[in-house]
Amino acid sequence: MNLKNDIEQYIPYDLQEAKEQEVMLKYLSNFDNLLTRENEFAHLTASAWIVNPERTKVLMAYHNIYQSWSWIGGHADGNADLLEVALKETTEETGLVSIAPIMKDIYSLEILGVPSHIKKGNPIATHLHLNVTYLIEANETEETTVKTDENSAIKWMELTEAVEACTEPEMKVVYKKLNDKLKS
């Protein structure tokens, strides 16, 4: 798997994604440490938009740092296979084990601003997440568990409910885009 090639081959959903793809490719060409948090300005992350087989619900977690309902995801931490990262984060953060990518291709691209915060007692500076999203399927009857150091609740929500439950305005835009893509 060649991450840069995958991002180059991705067909953007809209003009915003096209711009973010362009910027991500510039970063990948100019920085050699985007796969780790050693790059404190910007680094790669992977997210999972987890849907039920009918594509009518999405699994959201109540994120402790952002105090908002959120998708599942995390840092690459050196792993260039971001689909693998998204699947690993899904299992770690939700307890789900019967999960599968609906497609192995990238579902969405985002550049996300992360405000300064404290994580595990350490200050984290404002930075960017160069995020790659994958579409993952799970069964909503499978038992979930919270990962208490990251989230405090997990819930299946109707697609529009997931957007409405989020309290971060910039993420509402992302989640709406993911839902719109799902419906098209």
Rank of each mutant, 00 (worst) to 15 (best):
Y175F: 15
P169D: 08
E168L: 15
P115L: 02
D77R: 13
L159A: 06
T56S: 15
K172V: 05
G73A: 05
A100Q: 12
D149W: 11
N79I: 03
L159Q: 09
G95R: 04
E92R: 14
L59S: 06
K104Y: 04
T126V: 10
L82R: 04
G73M: 02
P123R: 13
N151P: 11
E170N: 12
M171P: 00
K57I: 06
I99Y: 13
M60P: 05
N79Y: 06
Y175V: 01
T160W: 05
P101F: 08
E168K: 13
E54N: 12
T91K: 14
T90C: 10
K147C: 11
N79Q: 14
I118C: 02
I65M: 03
M60R: 06
T145F: 10
Y62G: 02
D77M: 07
H117M: 05
K147Y: 14
D105R: 08
T148Q: 12
D105P: 02
T145Y: 09
T148D: 14
K147L: 15
A153G: 11
V58I: 13
I102H: 05
W156R: 11
D77Y: 06
E143L: 13
L82Y: 03
V163G: 02
S98H: 15
E93I: 00
P101N: 14
M157H: 09
L109Q: 05
K155A: 12
H127P: 11
Q67P: 01
P169W: 07
M60V: 07
V97S: 09
N64C: 08
M157I: 10
G74Q: 03
A61L: 13
V163H: 02
S70T: 09
L87R: 01
N139D: 15
T141D: 11
E140D: 15
M157C: 04
D77C: 07
G113S: 10
E150F: 11
A138L: 06
Y175M: 12
V85N: 02
H129L: 10
T133A: 12
K119H: 12
E143C: 03
P53C: 05
I136T: 03
I118T: 12
H129Q: 07
G113F: 10
I118K: 09
L83Y: 05
E143I: 10
N151D: 12
I124H: 09
N122K: 15
N151A: 06
A80Q: 10
E158G: 14
N151W: 04
